[in-house]
């Protein structure tokens, strides 16, 4: 991109080496720690469980996948992951859009509310899962305390196969919505006020402004949030491992957690790598689908 006239021969030579030297540390690290694991993960899913840990590697073809596909645990992990994604990603994106619109209102004291909404964004998934997990405790949790005060029946939440997955959805949404709201707020603030003024002169109602100006201009933000949220939630781990360990009755087990369990609890890294490969393929397929569905219309 740098165009120069009258470059001395010596300078050309130095310019040719210098950029590569400057790139070297970062690129070497990216290749070793980001690219090699992707490739070796694909490769390892075709090898038996010995792997690099005890040296005994054996090519087993699709045996790891065949074993997985016969298991009920894998079927449950896959359906739970898909069900969770279908619910949690549109839910978080929709709520973040609404909260962004709300936090974008020009009202006195709005800055204080925005600061409060920023708090969950700073919290780790570990802190969130542990704290909200105790809040949803079936016996001594705050949520059941509040339900009892309101005269409503107490719920088992994480203790019930019918409610555990939705409790995880609630916990992840609590921490996720404020995060994605930041993106919608920035998207809203990028929309020129002149557009709204022009529309109002033309006699457009507020609803028409929202429908014909705000929403179309938030399209890129929405696409980004939905795709990134989907990718992140596919590798959700901490709340499952800390709160339910996939239970009760496999109701919250997911592919990422199952990969961890097979690899690190049972030491079967071949099957764990096969699980991670399945996840990678599903993630790539969904990203492509979303990119296609949300492509610019023009």
């Amino acid at each position: 991109m740098v165009h120069r006239t009258q470059v001395s021969p010596q300078r050309v030579r130095r310019t040719q080496v210098t950029p590569y030297l400057f790139l070297l540390p970062a690129l070497v690290l990216l290749i070793i720690f980001r690219y090699i694991p992707i490739i070796s993960g694909l490769r390892e899913s075709f090898y038996s469980n010995g792997l690099s840990l005890n040296g005994g590697q054996q090519f087993v073809g699709l045996a790891n996948f065949a074993r997985l596909f016969r298991e009920e645990v894998f079927a449950r992990a896959l359906t739970n992951t898909v069900l969770f994604s279908i619910v949690v990603n549109p839910l978080q994106t929709g709520l973040a859009l609404l909260l962004g619109l709300l936090a974008n209102q020009k009202l006195r004291g709005i800055a204080t509310f925005r600061t409060i909404y920023l708090i969950p964004v700073a919290l780790s998934m570990t802190v969130t899962a542990l704290s909200l997990g105790l809040a949803f405790d079936r016996n001594y949790g705050m949520v059941n305390g509040l339900l009892a005060t309101l005269g409503l029946p107490q719920q088992p939440f994480l203790g019930s196969p019918n409610q555990a997955l939705w409790t995880i959805v609630a916990i992840v949404t609590w921490v996720g919505v404020p995060y994605w709201t930041i993106f919608f707020l920035a998207g809203l603030q990028n929309i020129s006020a002149q557009l709204y003024e022009a529309a109002q002169i033309d006699g457009a109602t507020k609803l028409q402004c929202f429908w014909h100006i705000t929403l179309p201009l938030l399209r890129r933000t929405t696409a980004f949030v939905l795709i990134t949220d989907t990718i992140i939630n596919f590798s959700l781990f901490a709340p499952i491992q800390l709160l339910t360990r996939g239970g009760p009755e496999l109701s919250t087990t997911m592919v990422m957690y199952e990969a961890y369990r097979r690899g690190f609890v049972y030491g079967d890294l071949g099957v764990a790598a096969a699980l991670a490969t399945c996840l990678l393929l599903v993630v790539l397929a969904i990203v492509m689908l979303q990119l296609f569905l949300l492509r610019p219309k023009d």
């Binding site: 090699i36 990718i231 590798s235 961890y260 890294l269 991670a276 993630v283």
Partner: peptide, 11 residues
């Protein structure tokens, strides 16, 4: 594009 956690086992 690929989140680090998905490749956590080979890493």
């Amino acid at each position: 594009i690929v989140p680090g956690d998905i490749t956590i086992i080979p890493s």
